[in-house]
């Protein structure tokens, strides 16, 4: 499996993503600068977290129009795997590859902490290795992760089992207390209709080694690598 990590001006989880793939021996990995318009022979493209273009206007709004995003949209249309993490998820929403939008966190604060995630769909290319019933423990770090979609879109996402992750407590119960940002229906990650584009606010790349406190994030990368 060949991974490409897109680097926007202001990305700051690009190295973490690169490192996660490298250290865990999941395949080849290289950086792709935002000005490039060719993704080469990548099988999976990662849009990393950070503050692309300083989060000017809206998170992800400017990055969406960078040259590399045109290539990413084509790549996704051809069935290539795209994983958007945090700011990467925001860019996928802005570019229309995934439905909905992000609002400021309900509590108005930047939230940086470990959360628990219930894997709602284990039959995706990104979650095939999540075989335990236990929720995943993965950190979040964002100020605009309050997911919104209108009721029609939500119904569609639910009906098609495209809500992949929900914030939950450590027992796996999805409730208001475990919702860190006000997202509708505790949504933490969704996938596109075709099943090749996943966006998630939590940072699996920050939970891939024991020394970091959790290895649960590894399951996401392993799922893609072995799918």
């Amino acid at each position: 499996m060949k991974f490409g990590v897109i680097v926007f001006p202001g990305s700051n989880c690009d190295f973490d993503s690169y490192q996660a793939i490298k250290v865990c021996g999941l395949g080849e990995v290289r950086y792709i600068w935002h000005g490039e318009s060719d993704l080469g022979d990548c099988d999976t493209v990662i849009l990393p977290g950070g503050f692309s273009y300083g989060d000017y206007l809206r998170s992800g709004a400017i990055a969406r129009f960078s040259p590399v995003m045109r290539a990413v949209v084509d790549f996704a249309k051809r069935g290539g795997f795209v994983l958007g993490i945090c700011n990467g998820f925001q860019i996928l929403l802005e570019s229309g590859l995934l439905p909905g939008a992000m609002r400021r966190n309900a509590g108005m604060r930047f939230v940086c902490k470990d959360v628990f995630l219930r894997v709602e769909n284990r039959f995706t290319k990104f979650t095939g290795c999540c075989i335990d019933d236990e929720p995943l423990r993965i950190p979040i770090a964002h100020g605009e992760g309050n997911y919104y979609a209108d009721s029609k879109t939500l119904r569609l996402l639910n009906d098609e089992e495209r809500i992949v992750f929900r914030y939950c407590d450590k027992e796996g119960d999805v409730n208001e207390e475990s919702n860190p940002n006000g997202s509708v229906e505790n949504i933490a990650g969704i996938i596109n209709e075709r099943g090749n584009v996943l966006g998630m606010m939590p940072h699996p790349e920050r939970a891939c080694e024991k020394i970091l406190g959790s290895e649960d994030g590894l399951l996401i990368f392993e799922s893609v690598a072995w799918s």
Binding site: R103, R104, N105, M108, N146, Y148, G182
Partner: peptide, 13 residues
């Protein structure tokens, strides 16, 4: 501006 019905945490704060 935010559409009617979209929660506006900044405004509330």
């Amino acid at each position: 501006r935010l559409k009617k019905g979209v929660h506006d945490p900044q405004g509330e704060t």
